[in-house]
Amino acid sequence: MTNKEKIFEVVKNHNLMNISTVDANGMPKSRGVDYAMGEDESVLYFITHKMTAKVQEIKDNHNVYVVIDHDCTSMEELNELRYIKAAGKAYVGDTPEKIQKAFGHIIEKFPYLKDLPGEQSDFVGVRVELEKVYLTDNTVQFGHTEEVTYR
């Protein structure tokens, strides 16, 4: 299996990513968001309320860092773990077309999110384009990490 195929599997089989931004004071901020894969494993979408701090932080600075990982309950699981860390760019989609595109990906993966409180116009779609992905694959060796560049 190639590294891009492994990254695809991580992105496809997880539901939560931590995304880090930088606020106006230069302080890093990280939070978890439900995400869905876009055109390929290097393009991710999430939706968020348009009044959140992360929206303004992304508009001010497109650089983001994401981690897609999960916890393990045994050494056996830990030895089989694959996860990614990645640097990339995020873009806020606030037109109806861009919001609908993000909602489409998210609702397909998480059908229950169609019942989010509020109107769809209260939300924006965020497109994350991964650039440098660091794939950790414990099946090779514990902590084995390789870099994959997309852009």
Rank of each mutant, 00 (worst) to 15 (best):
residue 1 M to L: 10
residue 2 T to K: 05
residue 2 T to L: 09
residue 5 E to M: 03
residue 5 E to C: 02
residue 7 I to F: 02
residue 10 V to C: 02
residue 11 V to M: 06
residue 14 H to C: 12
residue 15 N to Y: 10
residue 15 N to V: 06
residue 20 S to L: 11
residue 20 S to E: 08
residue 21 T to E: 03
residue 23 D to W: 01
residue 23 D to L: 09
residue 28 P to N: 06
residue 31 R to C: 05
residue 32 G to L: 11
residue 33 V to Y: 05
residue 34 D to K: 12
residue 34 D to R: 07
residue 35 Y to A: 07
residue 35 Y to E: 01
residue 35 Y to L: 10
residue 38 G to P: 06
residue 42 S to R: 03
residue 44 L to S: 06
residue 46 F to K: 01
residue 47 I to S: 09
residue 47 I to A: 07
residue 47 I to T: 15
residue 48 T to D: 08
residue 48 T to R: 01
residue 57 E to H: 11
residue 58 I to S: 05
residue 59 K to Y: 08
residue 60 D to N: 15
residue 60 D to P: 09
residue 61 N to L: 12
residue 63 N to K: 15
residue 63 N to T: 13
residue 64 V to W: 10
residue 66 V to L: 03
residue 66 V to T: 06
residue 67 V to P: 08
residue 69 D to P: 09
residue 70 H to P: 06
residue 72 C to K: 11
residue 74 S to Q: 04
residue 74 S to K: 05
residue 76 E to D: 14
residue 76 E to P: 00
residue 76 E to R: 08
residue 81 L to D: 13
residue 82 R to V: 14
residue 83 Y to T: 06
residue 85 K to S: 15
residue 86 A to T: 13
residue 86 A to N: 15
residue 86 A to Y: 05
residue 86 A to F: 07
residue 90 A to G: 13
residue 92 V to K: 13
residue 93 G to T: 04
residue 94 D to L: 09
residue 95 T to K: 11
residue 102 A to Q: 12
residue 103 F to C: 12
residue 103 F to R: 05
residue 104 G to Q: 08
residue 104 G to W: 02
residue 107 I to D: 02
residue 114 K to Y: 01
residue 118 G to Q: 00
residue 119 E to W: 04
residue 121 S to Q: 11
residue 122 D to K: 00
residue 123 F to T: 06
residue 126 V to L: 12
residue 128 V to E: 12
residue 128 V to F: 08
residue 130 L to W: 07
residue 130 L to Y: 03
residue 131 E to M: 10
residue 132 K to N: 15
residue 132 K to Y: 12
residue 137 D to T: 04
residue 138 N to R: 01
residue 138 N to I: 03
residue 138 N to P: 00
residue 138 N to T: 03
residue 142 F to I: 06
residue 143 G to C: 09
residue 145 T to K: 01
residue 145 T to L: 05
residue 145 T to E: 12
residue 145 T to H: 04
